[in-house]
Design a protein around this nucleic acid. Structure first.
Lengths: 203, 203
DNA sequence: TGTACATCAGTGAACGCGCGTTCACTGATGTAC
DNA sequence: TGTACATCAGTGAACGCGCGTTCACTGATGTAC
């Protein structure tokens, strides 16, 4: 399955194809280790050295995959809060969208938040930023709630981190522990947000 | 560094040494991939084929490491609730012990709850049991609280899963996101248990 | 319009590496007589 | 007490594999004159 060669100046097309192929390979194989330079090249219909025309090394390729997936995750969240003004409702929808992304793309979620790669190393700081972009909006939500006096006085960063830990817990567990899923992820999430919300919001 | 050969009938000593070496290698290297048959053999001071005298294959070795670590985790929890009778206090201490294990042994925690291996496959069911052993006691705690009317009517499995997701979220985030740790894991955990507890317990 | 030439998107073959696993073996330890 | 022998805990060498990466190359595409 040989890919037709790109026209002059269209060399960047391959870059895109490689990125998409790597993402799909990760999703389909269900294993980060299956995403080898050789496997990606094969999936695109090209020889391994061609990858190096677009990415310095394997690390850079995987980093690019992360960036791509962070963007997808951001879209999930934006779509979720679209047209919603109430900050507590926004918060809830954001949480749902977060978990939903993890369930829809378990391997990508693993790569972003559960793998060794997930630990942002200095040189990869804009990955941290990509991720932060979702997080900072969450912090924004929390700020709004604090300002409105809806939740008790507390460091917004702590509140936001707590919320993150909550959704991350559900998502990660849903991915690694299928037994949990049997009992219904939505049901679990509904229970947890209800309990947590009752504790968080002033009555 | 050649290990002295075991006496007759003391062949099982090597098995133990391999297991411990594999666990330490995992903890020190901070990477599951670093735990190769060859690396473990080297650490013990023995040649690679010797491993096969005690474990059928690499999978069985790693499975044994999991079992060992589940046991350690169980000890953390038992020590935590020792001499405590109040079920809600037990619950809280159990949560603390859970997170503490993850912080003390991040790579082992990864292996047990965050890796692909963490998904219990059929043949490995007693791993699920080992893990369940902690979980079933948690379910027991929840049952006691329900019976005492301290928490609202709800499926105890859902309540227990929620609690698990909560501590797992904090632990997993603390491991993969060092930025979170800067703000203080104990502080985050205290905030979350406080909020969650306020929502969970009837007043 | 035709042709020499530079450019650019790839290819093909090879490198060295570490891996899991196998197989035939060795040599010390204990046992039987 | 001495010696032949079985057992048992390992060893040494080798297998085939897939990996990331490099290097010199090819051949189609566009450009200059």
């Amino acid at each position: 399955v040989r890919r037709p060669r790109a026209k002059r100046g269209e060399g960047d097309k391959l870059r895109e194809e490689i990125l998409v192929a790597a993402s799909e390979l990760l999703a389909k194989s269900g294993d980060e280790e299956a995403v080898s330079i050789r496997a990606v090249a094969h999936a695109v219909g090209v020889t391994p050295p061609s990858i190096y025309l677009h990415f310095a090394d394997k690390d850079e390729l995987l980093f690019a995959v992360c960036t791509l997936q962070f963007r997808t995750m951001g879209e999930y969240q934006e779509r979720a809060v679209e047209g919603v003004d109430d900050p507590s409702e926004q918060l809830f929808r954001r949480a749902l969208a977060y978990v939903q992304f993890g369930i829809d793309h378990p391997e990508h979620y693993r790569l972003l938040f559960m793998s060794h790669r997930a630990t942002p190393v200095p040189e990869h700081e804009d990955a941290a930023l990509q991720q932060a972009s979702g997080f900072t909006q969450l912090v924004g939500n929390v700020h709004a709630l604090l300002a409105a006096g809806l939740i008790a006085e507390e460091d917004p960063l702590v509140v936001a981190s707590g919320l993150w830990a909550l959704v991350h817990g559900v998502t990660a567990l849903a991915i690694t522990q299928p037994a949990i899923t049997e009992l219904g992820v939505e049901r679990l999430l509904r229970h947890m947000t209800s309990v947590y919300g009752r504790g968080l919001f002033r009555t």
